Simulated assay, not measured.
Amino acid sequence: MKTLVTGASGATGLRFVEQLVIAGQEVKIIVRSTAEIPEAWHHDEHIELITGSISEMSREHMAEVLKNCGAIVSCLGHRPTFKGIYGKPRRLVHDAVKLICESIQSNAPAAPVKFVLMNTSGNANRDLNEPNPILNRIVIGLLRVLLPPHPDNEQAADYLRLTIGQDDPYIQWVAVRPDGLINEEAVTNYEVFPSPVRNPIFNAGKTSRINVANYMARLITEPDLWNTWKGQMPVVYNKEDG
């Protein structure tokens, strides 16, 4: 079975595909024709390239793409440009999650498909009683108004949490919440918690993209780790020295 990756040309998506290939996994990626991806991917027998825009794909097309996929990982995000943040599609991540989930359900796979959504520590897991000080609520309220990608991330996770839930016969999910993302070249020690252990607004920690990629790849390839975190929204931090 293969893993479908969306957002593979992004900073974390690139790292994630690399981690999957290192683990010997078969990968499908959906990328625009203009996306910048490593030249080696065009010749790698472990990687199947599908050229297109997920926001323009029909459910029938997506269902066909997913037929031999046992896992999906969404690293989708809005590009850090004015058009990427304020232009259309405003609900890029939510709509992609909805499209993929509906396509999986229409296929009615014999075994549940794993869905990993890369999210953000700034999005609280409302299934848990996570601390939410008033200043945080004020800032999050402003982000919802001023930065469309934030409510998009919230709505995408809520689709998995509320619409798919814990008992869907065809889909199991994990929404991974890194803290402040940084770039590092190698996997280092990291820690995973059910909820933030730092204030994500006023005292954010650091999470390297390659560590997030490594953790998501392990979720796909290690059944015990998947069973530990399925249906949850784990928060990933780089482990601090000392």
Rank of each mutant, 00 (worst) to 15 (best):
S9L: 01
A11N: 13
T12Y: 10
T12E: 06
G13Y: 01
F16W: 04
F16K: 01
F16S: 00
V21Q: 09
Q25A: 14
V27K: 05
I29C: 04
V31H: 03
T34N: 03
T34C: 00
T34I: 05
I37V: 06
P38M: 02
W41V: 06
D44P: 04
E45D: 08
E45V: 08
E48C: 06
L49I: 13
I50L: 15
T51I: 08
S53R: 14
S55L: 00
S55E: 05
S58R: 06
E60Y: 08
E60T: 05
H61N: 04
A63M: 01
C69W: 00
C69M: 02
G70K: 06
S74M: 07
G77H: 12
R79N: 07
R79T: 07
G84D: 04
G87N: 03
K88T: 01
R90H: 12
L92V: 02
H94Q: 11
I100S: 01
C101P: 02
E102I: 01
I104H: 05
S106Y: 12
S106H: 13
N107K: 13
P109M: 14
A111W: 15
P112L: 12
V113R: 14
V113F: 14
V113Q: 09
L117H: 09
M118K: 11
S121F: 00
S121K: 08
A124M: 08
R126I: 13
L128V: 03
L128F: 08
N129R: 07
P131F: 11
I134K: 06
I140K: 07
L142V: 12
L143Y: 06
L146P: 00
L146Y: 15
L147F: 15
P148F: 15
H150C: 07
H150V: 15
N153G: 06
N153M: 06
E154R: 13
Q155V: 07
A157D: 02
A157T: 05
Y159G: 03
L160M: 07
L162S: 00
T163C: 05
I164V: 11
I164A: 04
Q166D: 03
P169S: 04
Y170W: 12
Y170K: 00
Q172S: 15
W173A: 03
A175E: 11
A175R: 12
D179Q: 10
G180F: 04
G180D: 06
I182D: 11
A186L: 07
V187W: 00
N189V: 02
N189D: 15
V192T: 11
F193L: 05
R198H: 10
N199E: 10
P200L: 10
N203D: 13
A204W: 01
G205N: 09
K206A: 10
K206I: 11
R209G: 12
R209I: 11
V212N: 10
A213T: 13
A213P: 05
N214R: 11
N214G: 09
Y215L: 12
L219N: 04
L219E: 08
I220D: 09
I220S: 06
E222Q: 15
D224A: 14
L225D: 03
N227H: 15
N227Y: 15
T228F: 15
W229Y: 13
W229R: 06
Q232W: 08
Q232P: 02
P234I: 03
E240Q: 13
D241Q: 12
D241N: 12
G242R: 14
